[in-house]
């Protein structure tokens, strides 16, 4: 019963994003996409990593690079890997 959480917005501007944290289980994964990438250096990602290890935190490489962000708190992946993750988890919750 593991969930893939797609994070689509900055938790600092959209508090609904923080709801992901209360619904995050130890075996879940999160993927930062779109403006969700801005969480990469903020409290959201450090709070998430109190629940799941860094190896379960991903970010879409194109979306990170487009925003000029530096990543050391997540694994950067491409769309192909995202599709694999989608099918490796029971459900997907989109936070936006």
């Amino acid at each position: 019963m593991t969930t893939l959480h797609l994070i689509r917005d900055s938790a600092l501007s959209n508090n609904s994003i923080n709801l992901c944290l209360t619904n995050l289980s130890a075996t879940d994964v999160i993927v930062l996409i779109d403006d969700g990438c801005y969480n990469i250096n903020s409290a959201f990602i450090s709070d998430a990593q109190k629940i799941i290890p860094l190896k379960q935190c991903y970010a879409i490489e194109e979306h990170i690079n487009a925003r000029g962000l530096q990543v050391n708190t997540a694994i950067v992946i491409n769309y192909e890997y995202l599709l694999e993750l989608i099918f490796n988890h029971q459900n997907v919750i989109t936070w936006q």
């Binding site: 194109e62 769309y79 192909e80 599709l83 694999e84």
Partner: peptide
């Protein structure tokens, strides 16, 4: 983004 995910699904 939605389009890219659908496009990738087809490629995969």
């Amino acid at each position: 983004t939605a389009f890219k995910i659908v496009e990738q699904a087809i490629q995969s």
